[in-house]
Simulated scan of single mutants.
Amino acid sequence: MKKRIPLKPGDTLGVCAPSARFNIEKLNKGIHNLKKMGFKVKVPEEIFEKKRYLAGDDISRARVINQLYSDFDINGIICARGGFGAMRILNHLNWNSIRQNPKSFIGFSDNTAILLSIISQTGNPVIHGPNVVSFANAQQETLDSFYTAVTEPFDKMDVKNPQTIKPGNCTGILKGGNMATISHLLGTKFQPDFKDAVLFLEDIGEPAYKIDRMLTQMKMAGLFQGIQGVIAGSFENCDNDEYIEEIFFEIFEEYNVPVLSGLTSGHGRINLSMVMGTNIKMDTKSARILWI
């Protein structure tokens, strides 16, 4: 694992669009909020390209990321939006360049595919946090959390409305993100390794039975062998969400690890940012996550 390189006011964030096409008005509002925080923002012209539901073809979307990593004037990289498309460009990313030029890479949702691949391919930490369009109408708590996560210090997070599914405490490398995206990486060379990880999961618009199905598939594929703990984030607009904690208990019971839910990170009204790919401590009693 490598240490995170924090951002500071005046640093430049480069915008990439690895996934779906985006609303330009929301993008501009999001950029405005990033500038209000004190960051400069570089927007490559290529991100406005279109191919079906994607923000350009695969080679173009990957090229933007590769160029931002090789640009010494860029201090961090943030995704325009999620949707779908990030996993399509994984084979086109220059992993040697990404490894040799560690920068804060920020995103969530479909961009979970890139976040987890950066961790596994390079050892560089990443930021699970809002995409640019998310900043257009973001709550102040989301904005504050993002600023804290990308700058120093960032050392703890309290789960304000915790539900202990299985009590205990653990230490491990924080990994995870969008559940549907993770499940679609199974069987590929970019399938994540969650051994020794504290696993974070979130999703949107998935009924309880589909959440059950995805978790069961990942379990049967051996993805949870060696995990140290589980943190459940937001499950927004998920039908029968009253079943989710019971499903999590059943899926993870045999691993004898602590399982905590209630973290407001993901697709909910508030999306708290977190550094992933680094060691954390999680304690269900205090409902606190500590970065160590």
Rank of each mutant, 00 (worst) to 15 (best):
A62H: 00
C79D: 03
F252A: 08
D283M: 00
G176P: 01
C16Y: 00
K285I: 12
L93H: 02
K281R: 15
F48W: 05
A113D: 09
T142Y: 01
F200T: 11
N237P: 04
I292C: 08
R213F: 07
K35P: 12
M87E: 04
V43F: 12
N33Q: 15
E242V: 08
S120G: 11
I59P: 01
I98T: 14
F72G: 08
K8S: 10
R269M: 07
G107A: 05
N279S: 05
A197N: 06
A149L: 12
A221V: 04
V230H: 06
R81K: 14
W95M: 11
K26Y: 07
Q100C: 08
T164P: 02
I78E: 12
W95T: 03
E245A: 09
Y209A: 08
N75L: 11
F248W: 09
N66C: 05
I231V: 10
A20V: 01
E202A: 09
W291E: 11
P44G: 10
S109C: 09
A221P: 11
Y53R: 05
V126F: 07
T278E: 10
N169W: 02
I127L: 12
R21M: 06
G176T: 01
H128P: 04
D144L: 12
P167S: 03
F154Q: 05
N96Q: 13
K160F: 05
A113F: 09
K40M: 12
A197K: 02
I270H: 02
V230D: 03
L54W: 08
V198K: 11
K3W: 13
M220Y: 15
G76L: 12
I65P: 00
I119D: 12
P162Q: 01
G129S: 15
G172C: 02
F194R: 00
K2L: 14
R21D: 03
N96K: 14
L7V: 04
G268E: 10
S70H: 07
N101W: 07
